[in-house]
Structures are given as C-alpha cells and as structure tokens.
Simulated assay, not measured.
Amino acid sequence: MKGVFTLIFSICFITSILPTHVLAKNAPKQGIVWQGSDVYITFKHNSKVDMHLIFGPCGINNTFNLKSIYTTSNSKRIFPWVTDKSNPFLISKTDWLGPYVVKALVKGDDSNPAFTGGWHGSNGNATGAATAKTTSISVKVNGKAITKNKSYYGNAEVTVINLIQAYNTKKKGTFVLKEVVKYSFTPKKVGISITTTALEDVLLERYYGLQAQVNSWKGKIQYSNGKTGSYGKYSDSGPAKKSTANSYVIASSSNAYKLRAKIDSSVGLGKLGNLSPELPAIFMESYGKVYFNLVNGKNKKITKGQSTNWKGSYEFL
C-alpha cells in the first residue's frame, strides 16, 4: 500500500507542477452545449481566450441563425458555457445566411419584388408578418445525436430545415421553398452547405447566400483577388468579368481578430453562373455588412421538385 500511495502522490505532484500547455496538449479543442433552443459552440481563439458562437432562433421569422458571439478569458481547458465573466463580441442584428427575392410562377399575386426569409418580414424589412419558419433542428457531435444541457467535445453538425415564402405569396402565407442548411463545426471554422428545393415553380431573382455582419471587425477588408477596402465605406472585388473573388478576410482594428468568409466556387450557385459579369462577386456596404453575389442580374428558374445549392465557410482567425 505504501508503494501505491507513493506512486499516486508522485503522479499528482508531477502533474501539479507541469506547465499548463503540457497539461492541455491533448485537451478537447471544441465544446458544444445544446441549451433550450440555442446551440453553443466554443473553441480556443487563442491560448488565453475562448470564443463562443451562439446559434438559435432570431429575427422576425424566428429562424435558426447566428445570434451572437462572446469571448471569455481562459488560459485553461475549454469551458463551453457563457457566464457573467464572458464578454459580448458581436450581437447579430441581421441575417448571416441570405434571404431570397423569389417569385412564384403559378399561384402568386402581383406584389412587388422584395426579400423574404432570413430576417425579412412581410414589409420587406425586419417588420411585419413572418415570411419563413424553421421546421426542424438536429444536433450531432462526432456523428451522434446529443441531449440538451450537457457538455460535449469534438466536431459538431447541425441540420436545419426552413420553409420560405415568395414575395408574391406572402399575403397568403404560402411557402414555395424548402431550405436545408447543414452547419459543420470544427475548431475556429463553420462550414455551410445549403440545398434549396422548389415546392412549386419559382423564379429566383436575387440571392446573396453567405453574408456577414462585420461591425466587430472594423479594419481593412482584403478580397481574394487582391482588391482591398475599409470598414464604413463601400468596396467590392471589382467586375466579375475582369477578376472574380471567392473569399475575403476582414480584420479588427487591433488586428487581434480576423474573419475569413469563403464560397466554394466549384459548387452550384458558387460557380456564379447567375451573376452578371458587370457586377462584383463580393461587396461590402458602408453600414457594415459583406455580401456574396450568387444570383444577381441573371434570374434562375427552379421548377417544382428541383433544387439548387452552394457551399461556403466562416473562419475565425
């Protein structure tokens, strides 16, 4: 017994004096909690800061989207809970996955074009009646379904199904699109895959897809084709016919935080077959939002039962 006690004491003593980075070498790199209607994804932004991404129902349509980002000072292992010691980094005031300007070709009325879905209500902005709804959410970690209010560690997948009205069916409340959004979460990266299926014949007139509210990154924006811009001023990647771009990086003013957003240019709408060559593939508005131009200038007809898709990602650098 004395030998066993000595061994245990030695192990505990050695562990207590090991540097934190040695102890954390094999520590989990990402934590997940599904609490209430929200999903919390936590990863090490750097050795001293945890970053928490909170996804859940928000906006006029109460659809699943990025709600907020928090940071917590923590030089130890990941703690996947937002506490009173966490600091708000970003509170979403707009959608990150784009709404649609979509027209029903069979049973629609003569309403004027307007965005529906995302954070857009029946008034065309963030007010009015809902124009979309989330019908299901599933959450998996390492390929297995999880239960609520329990911490998990590893890679996560969240699948969301939304229904979207057309601008000329919102008076009747008729849904014309089924949108399946698949999020894949690995440390510091969010993969996005969207497949949109027509529930009746429609014409997709405008669609940005991947968007970002960048008021927490107020520095320089660098487009992947070399073009640059500054927060608070309109900029873009230039006409697609001259030089297209499939990603950008925007930095905080201190350069401590960076966001990279990217569209897979080999998949579906990411090929930009529905973008006018005179328009830019990416642009930033002066009010602090960046858009990809997936459908603009070339309408896309989708017949009942057919689908369109795209893939992209966010990285927190």
Rank of each mutant, 00 (worst) to 15 (best):
E285Y: 01
S111Y: 11
K311M: 07
K170V: 04
P280F: 06
Y167S: 04
F55M: 08
L210P: 04
G3I: 10
F292I: 06
S216M: 00
T131C: 07
G36Q: 03
N155S: 13
I146M: 06
T308V: 14
T174Y: 10
K262C: 12
K29N: 10
Y207P: 03
K150M: 07
S254V: 10
A129I: 05
K242M: 11
K262R: 12
V158P: 07
N215T: 10
V39H: 05
I91C: 02
Y40F: 12
K172W: 00
N26Q: 11
K67P: 05
A129L: 14
I91T: 13
S237F: 03
V214W: 02
G143M: 09
S247H: 11
K2A: 05
A198R: 00
K140V: 02
K44W: 04
W119R: 09
N296C: 10
K262W: 12
S254F: 11
F5Y: 13
L18H: 08
T169V: 11
S111H: 12
Y40L: 07
G232H: 01
I161K: 13
F64M: 04
Q30F: 02
S184R: 15
V176H: 00
I161N: 08
F89I: 00
W119Q: 09
R260Y: 04
K29E: 15
K170A: 00
D109T: 13
N26Y: 11
V22L: 15
P19K: 08
S73D: 15
V39Y: 01
K140M: 14
S243N: 15
S184W: 02
N26F: 12
T94V: 07
G238M: 03
G143W: 05
G36Y: 05
V202W: 00
I221E: 00
S151C: 12
Y248D: 05
Y287M: 02
V139I: 09
A198F: 07
L275Q: 01
P57E: 11
V141D: 06
V4M: 06
G121Q: 10
F175P: 00
K172V: 10
V139F: 06
N162G: 06
T63S: 07
T308R: 00
S184V: 14
W119S: 03
S136G: 09
A198M: 05
E157Q: 13
K150T: 13
P187C: 08
Y208N: 05
V181D: 07
S184Y: 04
I17T: 15
I263D: 02
A261I: 03
V202S: 06
N168S: 01
S136E: 12
T94A: 12
N309E: 15
I263K: 05
N274K: 12
A251H: 15
G238Q: 01
S265F: 04
A114C: 14
L269S: 09
C58R: 09
L272H: 14
F55H: 03
P88W: 04
T6R: 01
S16Y: 10
V249D: 12
V290W: 07
L269G: 00
P187N: 12
F43M: 08
H52K: 06
G229C: 01
L199H: 02
K25C: 08
V102Q: 03
G36V: 02
I194E: 14
N112L: 15
E157F: 01
A130H: 06
W96C: 02
A129H: 07
S266W: 01
P280A: 02
V4D: 03
Q35M: 09
I250R: 08
